[in-house]
Design a protein around this nucleic acid. Structure first.
Length: 567
DNA sequence: GCCGTTTTCGGCCCGACTGTTTTCAGTCG
């Protein structure tokens, strides 16, 4: 775990403890904010400390800087020890239970001596909890439901899983609404989604909300009012929130429910400085509403140009918008081809010709076929003879089909000693080479990738961290070192678009961007239906502030800045 | 605890929903 992550976790725990103790809410907020920023910060906090620049990080002032320094020097933080002192070890975890907040947790601890989950369940069963001041039958019932949800576990799910659920819900509600759109982290194209936010407007609010809460997919209704309802759906116990607003507020509401929370807090602060007030209903000057129909007018009143949703994470986008220095982000229409697709030759489903036709139908100019190399036997890796035959077939297809160029790529294994799975002579004959770790995830991965980067015929490093959102941690790799080295050798890093990978992720993209690295988008498709995953890669690229100039796939094939051409 | 060409002190986003209250507190996003 990186030091940024470690310290962020400690700050979050301090915030939990302070919240439990009823400390000043702004101090708590300061710790949470610092934790979030640290977690996403593209520079290593230890390095910044050595340069005496910790306070350069926004949200880190004198106090936090001292605490970070103390931790880096001693491995301990006195403030943390003090904050958790006297609090039973398992207690603060219970803050994750929905409907059970810090106030109630403190109450059950001080009045009933609850120290962990089983204590809590016991005082619910015995009826002791319901007798406490301010509690009642329904509150207890809600906490009980919260415990159920907590036990089932509600992990964030990959955007690839969330999107079809949202589309399903929207298609069923569409006929009752005038406008209906996803908001929240889904609209910001975050790699994982915690809950789904949907925004709608229409003639009959009550009807829309009634239809929503009675959809077949709904397992439980958490809350239901005139403008808002929350439900749990059967898939993944996902929470879905629907808001219904007037058309004159749609833009303000879309802005508000798209978030992120940190982005909105900063925006509202900005409004306050100008004597304005923003809410989901609009921008207000005193009592008078002066904007709200569109997002553009909301941002404009604050002196900002419209900020793309993917940037709204309070990572400097508001400051950039104030100076009109937002990057022009890559868009779907800029993409001229997919650079990582498997064919039937290895473990893909379709023939190269079928893939080529699909790619042409998508409007692509080229398609990069990258089958597995010989060591990946399970994935049908190609020996040298088969590779030769495949390349000849690609030549024939390029003769036969006009309007699409099939590129001879390969996803070549990086072996245990850092060498590649084919000789340089074979690699040289290919149009481009993606090098990938597919075995030995814990064996010297950083060094092996660096050896691969040194090979002049390696153009791209595939899924550089190896993580899978559904579970696998990724290789034991020092990604900062890989980024540094790739920059030195002009090697491109892949943004693997497969929704369970999305690797590099946004934070690593930001790091690599700082080192002037270029990126390639590859869906890693194993069937043609997966070619559409390019949208997820574009989303992550946009979250990493990338412009089209920084992405290989926006260049014509002849003009692609590949390293082998710079020789 | 952070932050500042209106401030080094006094601010710090704003509202919905629920339940328990009798005007509001807690939780959530």
């Amino acid at each position: 775990m990186s030091k940024n992550q470690e310290i962020a976790d400690i700050f979050d725990k301090i915030a939990d403890a302070l919240e439990f103790k009823g400390d000043d809410s702004f101090r708590i907020g300061a710790y949470r904010k610092a934790a979030r920023i640290l977690r996403e910060y593209p520079e290593d906090v230890e390095e910044l400390w050595r340069k005496g620049e910790i306070q350069k990080i926004p949200g880190i002032g004198k106090g936090m800087a001292e605490k970070i320094e103390e931790y880096l020097k001693t491995g301990k933080m006195k403030k943390y020890e003090e904050a958790i002192e006297g609090i039973p070890q398992e207690l603060l975890q219970l803050l994750e239970i929905p409907n059970l907040g810090p106030k109630t947790l403190n109450l059950v601890y001080t009045k009933l001596g609850v120290k962990n989950l089983s204590d809590l369940e016991r005082v619910i069963e015995t009826g002791q909890l319901a007798k406490l001041f301010g509690m009642g039958e329904k509150k207890v019932e809600n906490i009980k439901k919260g415990i159920e949800l907590y036990k089932q576990g509600r992990e964030r799910i990959p955007i690839g899983v969330a999107l079809p659920i949202v589309e399903e819900i929207i298609s069923q509600l569409k006929k009752y609404t005038e406008k209906i759109e996803p908001a929240g982290s889904l609209r910001r194209m975050k790699e994982t989604i915690g809950d789904i936010d949907i925004l709608a407007t229409g003639k009959n609010n009550i009807e829309i909300i009634d239809k929503f809460t009675t959809l077949p997919i709904v397992k439980e209704v958490l809350a239901k009012g005139d403008t808002k309802a929350s439900v749990i759906v059967t898939t993944n116990n996902l929470q879905v929130d629907l808001r219904v607003v007037e058309p004159s507020s749609f833009g303000a509401a879309l802005q508000y429910f798209t978030g992120s929370k940190a982005h909105n807090i900063k925006l509202r602060g900005l409004a306050k400085d100008k004597g304005l007030k923003i809410s989901e209903y609009g921008v207000f000057k005193g009592e008078k509403k002066i904007a709200g129909k569109t997002e553009e007018e909301v941002y404009k009143l604050l002196g900002l140009i419209w900020i793309p949703p993917e940037l709204r994470e309070d990572r400097g986008e508001i400051e950039a918008a104030l100076e009109n220095k937002l990057p022009i982000l890559v868009e779907e229409k800029d993409i001229k081809g997919d650079l990582h697709v498997h064919s039937k030759y290895s473990d893909g489903v379709e023939t190269i010709e079928e893939i080529a036709i699909s790619a042409k139908n998508l409007g692509y100019e080229y398609i990069g076929i990258c089958d597995h190399s010989k060591t990946s036997k399970i994935a049908g890796g190609l020996d040298e003879d088969t590779l030769k035959r495949r390349n000849e077939e690609i030549d024939r297809i390029n003769e036969k089909i006009r309007g699409i160029k099939v590129l001879k790529g390969m996803e070549v294994d990086i072996l245990a000693d850092g060498s590649l799975d084919y000789s340089d002579k074979i690699l040289e004959e290919l149009d481009f080479v993606i090098a990938a770790i597919h075995q030995g995830f814990k064996k010297n991965v950083t060094e092996r990738i660096k050896r691969a980067i040194e090979n002049p015929f390696v153009d791209i490093i595939a899924h550089p961290t190896g993580r899978l959102l559904s579970g696998r941690e990724g290789y034991e790799v020092d990604i900062d070192e890989v980024i540094e080295y790739a920059g030195k050798f002009n090697v491109i890093l892949e943004i693997n678009c497969y929704p369970d990978r999305l690797d590099l992720n946004d934070v690593n993209i930001l790091k690599a961007k700082k080192k002037n690295i270029k990126f390639s988008l590859g869906t890693d498709s194993h069937n043609i239906g997966m070619l559409k995953y390019i949208r997820f890669g574009i989303g992550i690229a946009r979250r990493g502030w990338l412009t089209k100039e920084e992405i290989l796939n926006t260049y014509k094939w002849e003009e692609m800045p590949l390293r082998r051409r710079k020789k």
